[in-house]
Amino acid sequence: MKKEKFTIVTFLCNWCSYEGADRAGSARLNCPANIRVIRVMCSGRVEPQFVIQAFRDGASGVLILGCHPGDCHYKKGNYKARRRIILLKKTLKQFGIEQDRVRLDWVSASEGTRFAKIANEMADTIKQLGPLSELEALN
């Protein structure tokens, strides 16, 4: 059974990318409605578990945005996020989940245009991949 609609759970860090998303709003840039935002203090707070939970709970994609390398409000949280997501994606592949369903990128507080661009790209990627299939029959 395939779902028609899909959602992209989006984690934004409080200091840069959340403001970047706000900036996209102030500039009235169109962003896909299936981008659903959860605010965290730092991309370093995003546990790989959140990503897996999002998939389990029905998301077709997960987008994680943090401050650009070197600009993290907490200095180095984004580097940890990067390492975790790279290892997670490797693991997800073994679970049959396409690596492109997870994207980690950087958006600064002033980059409204960049936020909108990434959001739209992500939606296009997921549209192409299709919604994440339901789990195989368990029996």
Binding site: P48, Q49, R84, L88
Partner: peptide, 16 residues
Amino acid sequence: TDVGVKMISALASIIG
């Protein structure tokens, strides 16, 4: 709740 994903996070934190 999930051993593997916790280990991924812990290990990736300290590698590199």
